[in-house]
Design a binder for these strands. Structure first.
Length: 532
RNA sequence: GGCCCCGUCGUCUAGUUAGGCCUAGGACACAGGAUUUUCAUUCCUGCAACAGGGGUUCAAAUCCCCUCGGGGUCACCA
């Protein structure tokens, strides 16, 4: 006879798209605002990273989905550090993760630094709770101490593998009397295994995977604590999720198989089962393989901080992350956070792996850069210039003014915040060098004469502004017969670059003095054959 | 190998729960053109997909079965 254990839905608010009963729709007519709030207020989600030293872009996405669900329903988002493996507990590693969240603007209601009613929020500090759970489980006959040496278990495992049989381990002590088992546990502190019942089917109605079943006969008695009472991941997670009253577990799909043992633990511990949603992992661009930090595809940034360093805007990354496996509708791509919060639902999360699309993220970044008020863009670009030593930190009023002018003259050319370095470097250096493309224009026959004429024209130009420079240069273009082509030479000779902000703007921002100096410098370089 | 999941343009996706509104929509990328006296914008056009095979049905991307492909996971790690 088979019994079926399922995770009963906690609320009808979020019915499953395929298998869930559309309770919300059925009840919506009789829902009043207070009732709706009482249901939605109960949503508590969590993100439980293991402190590895950086925030993986996929992890950030998982955290975002949890955060979004909590915010959407007026609930709480909890941050917990999964550092049961003591070697993983490193303060700087945790700090890195928290910095990542702060940069993105994902705040947590309970967790590191702020605490909360269900703390501590570091698993390494919750040993007593795991110990209590282990004892409770042994007392109630749900778990037992395993005295078999690991070497022996390994041998059995290998034998099963060799025979191509599933390895289903049941310890010798599984039928030991609970009281005796507890004595053994307390005195010898051996590993502890959960007694998986046989002949049952465990079912899960996952919010994104749908209905999933496992046969208990295929699951061995899994370990919940290694010797010396050190709790293992599955145990710690379930104990904490119950203790912290987590209602919705949204995590990456690689945890789907962990759900089977965890479901047993929820039952054994008498905890209410949360709603589960296993979201697809983030795949490397153009593949279905999980994006990994260990061997990232060339040019693909995996750690969140790399995006910050590259000059991405948090809101662009947020938008990109939200679109990874989730969509608002059939056409909306650019949406602010509030729109995402207002519309987020697990039902719209796709089940297939979501490939990261760097091109699209870059495009999104461009969209947000255009929207950004100039003053804010300038504020955010300044650190990139300062980091290169091009301006002082903090910048002087004059430097800030120049950056603002460059920004205005650049129009939509600045895609990444760091582009200011590429586009504006020469404004802050005492002299200029000539890049390859610029050199091409300056190597042309008669270039020196043209540069000379430009210098003469600008030397006495009055006033010296964008309009007058444009007038003078176009006149010169006409008289030399070069027409618009004179601009190439002008740019190359004054900035050393072939691309950049509007060329008349560049000259005007540079000012007469610096422009003439750069022209002299270029002239000397041409004549001394230093332009190559 | 066992178990589990997934499979719509090159990419991200809409559409799949309630089969017809889909000769499959949008976006990114790419190609071409227009605007811009650099570049970047902007605009227009184009390219391009239901993994395959069987069913069920008047009708299937949508339901059923099989095959193939991809992935995840199988610890006294998290």
């Amino acid at each position: 006879m088979r019994e079926v254990v399922t995770n009963a839905p906690l609320s009808g608010e979020i019915g499953h798209r395929k298998y869930g009963v559309p309770v919300a729709r059925a009840l919506s007519v009789c829902y009043n605002e207070a009732q709706r709030r009482s249901v939605t207020m109960s949503v508590r989600t969590r993100f439980a990273p293991s402190p590895t030293g950086y925030l993986h872009i996929g992890g950030a996405r998982t955290a975002l989905f949890n955060w979004l669900l909590a915010r959407r329903h007026g609930g709480q988002f909890i941050l917990r550090i999964d550092d049961t493996d003591e070697a993983r507990h490193v303060d700087e590693a945790v700090a890195k993760i928290l910095e990542g969240f702060r940069w993105l603007g994902i705040d947590w209601d309970e967790g590191p630094e702020i605490g909360g009613p269900h703390g501590p929020y570091y698993q390494s500090q919750r040993g007593d709770k795991y110990e209590a759970a282990i004892i409770q489980l042994i007392k109630s006959g749900k778990a037992y101490p395993d005295l078999t040496p690991t070497t022996e278990v390994d041998t059995l495992r290998r034998a099963a593998e060799a025979a191509k049989q599933p390895f289903v381990y049941r310890g010798k002590e599984r039928d030991m009397d609970p009281a005796a088992a507890l004595d053994v546990y307390l005195s010898k502190r051996p590993a502890v295994r959960y007694k998986v019942p046989s002949g049952r089917v465990v079912a899960l109605d996952d919010k994104v995977r749908g209905h999933v079943e496992w046969q208990t006969d295929l699951l061995g008695d899994f370990t919940i604590a290694r010797n010396e009472g050190k709790p293992l991941y599955n145990l710690a997670t379930v104990v904490d999720d119950i203790d912290m009253k987590i209602t919705h577990i949204v995590r990456a799909e690689e945890h789907l198989s962990n759900t089977h043992p965890q479901l047993h633990l929820f039952e054994g511990l008498g905890g209410e089962k949360p709603v589960f949603a296993h979201i697809p992992y983030v795949a490397a661009p153009g593949t279905k393989k999980k994006l990994s930090k260990r061997n990232p595809p060339p040019g693909v940034m995996v750690a969140l901080e790399e995006y910050e360093q590259a000059g991405y805007l948090p809101r662009a990354v947020l938008n990109g992350l939200a679109r990874l496996g989730w969509s608002l509708d059939d056409k909306t791509e650019v949406m602010d956070l509030q729109t995402v919060i207002d519309n987020f639902s697990l039902e719209k999360v796709v089940a297939a792996p979501a490939g990261l699309d760097p091109d699209k993220l870059y495009w999104l970044q461009d969209q947000y850069m255009k929207q950004l008020p100039s003053a804010e863009r300038v504020d955010r670009m300044i650190p990139f210039l300062a980091a290169k030593g091009l301006i002082s930190a903090p910048p002087t009023a004059e430097e800030r003014e120049t950056v603002a002018k460059i920004d205005a003259a650049s129009g939509d050319r600045l895609k990444l915040l760091s582009d200011i370095v590429r586009y504006g470097e020469f404004f802050f250096t005492p002299t200029i060098d000539h890049d390859k493309e610029a050199a091409k224009h300056l190597r042309k026959e008669g270039a020196a004469e043209v540069v000379e004429k430009i210098k003469d024209a600008l030397a006495t130009l009055e006033p010296f502004d964008v309009k007058s420079v444009e007038g003078a240069i176009s006149q010169l273009g006409a008289s030399t017969g070069l027409g618009g082509k004179i601009n190439h030479i002008l740019r190359a000779a004054t900035t050393g670059r072939s691309v950049g902000p509007g060329v008349y703007d560049c000259v005007a921002i540079l000012g007469r003095e610096k422009t003439l100096r750069n022209l002299e410098h270029t002239l000397a370089a041409i004549r001394e054959g230093r332009i190559v």
